[in-house]
Nucleic acid binder design. Structure first.
Lengths: 137, 137
DNA sequence: ATACATATATGTAAAATGCACATAGAGTAT
DNA sequence: ATACTCTATGTGCATTTTACATATATGTAT
């Protein structure tokens, strides 16, 4: 019914294609909490650990701002560490609320995985194609 | 220096807790494309189908705006359908670029599933392959 | 001294998302 | 007729999330 003339607009498509990323929103928060549950740490180090979870080019600003927000929300706590050479570090610790929050996140992530399984089942499978053959309405 | 009012922060944490959702960014786009790959459709119907993919309370505005943007990006095309009773429908068709885009998304999603597997492996207590014991505190 | 790695942070803008509201055709009840 | 409801598509605005650029400071190596 409308399959003619689909040559234009390659430019806009290009823009979108570059930006495609399947990472969930706020991914950084659970990643930080998981790291802090293992051992206390600070921004600069957490930035490196975050790389292992899909943040190749982590921008410092984003991470530090996220940490401050997390502290405001009560899921982490921080103290300055000045007892060594070099610039002071703000050491972070996960709170009990943070652990609960991480559990909450994990549940949500699990759900997300099921949703993605459904997506792939539809994507790779061929649901009734020989019967339906593309109905338009 | 940063321990003021820890009790008050429960409120902020509450706010975050309610809002936690592990949906990926732009989730709506691949869901629409997947639907359109099966059969042509229009906003109102796509809205219902999207519910099956984690959009319980889909807002019309978000969906319609997304569809228009997708057309600008060349991954879908639309024509008005006025040949029947009731309000006119804008019927959407997936383009070749749209199919490529969906494939691209699927690859990204697959990659992300591995990342989440790593997350869960760490969360549930089983160490990551490349993980060494390394302590800061 | 100046260059570099470490370390934290702000300012601003763009993108994504959510919420409220606006418009309109068609059918049905009063 | 008019009021009401269901279908259907949209705009406006604010907030949230994310990205990008830049600023500051401390210690070490050259």
């Amino acid at each position: 019914m409308n399959n003619e003339g689909q040559e234009r607009k390659v430019e806009g498509q290009e823009r979108e294609l570059r930006g495609v990323e399947a990472r969930p929103r706020n991914w950084l928060v659970p990643v930080i909490l998981l790291s802090l549950r293992e051992w206390n740490s600070y921004g600069y180090e957490l930035m490196e650990r975050a790389s292992a979870f899909g943040f190749e080019a982590m921008n410092p600003g984003t991470l530090y701002r996220t940490l401050r927000q997390m502290e405001k929300d009560g899921i982490v706590e921080s103290t300055w560490e000045t007892s060594r050479g070099g610039p002071a570090r703000r050491m972070y610790t996960i709170t009990d609320a943070g652990k609960s929050y991480l559990d909450f996140w994990a549940k949500s992530l699990e759900q997300y995985q099921h949703t993605m399984d459904n997506f792939f089942r539809l994507y790779t499978g061929r649901p009734l194609q020989e019967d339906k053959e593309k109905k338009d309405e």
